[in-house]
């Protein structure tokens, strides 16, 4: 097995863990963290392909940098939404957030 395959399997595993968490856990914060893990898995792929492609292009690294910035923004807005939902519903279980109007 080449290192590249191992890297891709790692990111595949990480993506699945994130997906499983986002699908099974009812807590909004954990769902967000699962989404973060999936984002990280994608970043792992970018770096792995940059490392093993052998080409001169460094688009992978640049893309991961932008992805990090967007992930930070996503986490900030997502958790702010969680706090806002909590203020309305007194709960952060996603199943409880069923009303559109607080």
């Amino acid at each position: 097995m080449t290192p590249l395959t191992l890297c891709l399997l790692l990111s595949c595993g990480l993506f699945s863990v994130g997906l499983a968490a986002a699908l099974t856990r009812g807590n909004a914060i954990l769902v967000l963290l699962g989404v973060e893990l999936m984002l990280n898995a994608a970043n792992l792929n970018f770096i792995a392909f940059w490392r093993f492609s052998g080409g001169p292009a460094s688009t992978g690294v640049v893309f991961v940098l932008f992805s990090l910035a967007v992930a930070a923004a996503e986490a900030a807005v997502g958790l702010a939404l969680v706090i806002a939902v909590y203020r309305h519903q007194q709960s952060i279980r996603l199943q409880d957030a069923v009303r559109l109007k607080g």
Partner: peptide
């Protein structure tokens, strides 16, 4: 949820394992 994630994992893993990547630096 676990089943869905497991299916995604197996499809992705299968794809990774069966693909031939060119030019491993």
């Amino acid at each position: 949820g676990l089943m869905a994630a497991g299916m995604v994992a197996s499809i992705l893993g299968l794809a990774v394992l069966t693909t031939r990547f060119s030019g491993a630096a």
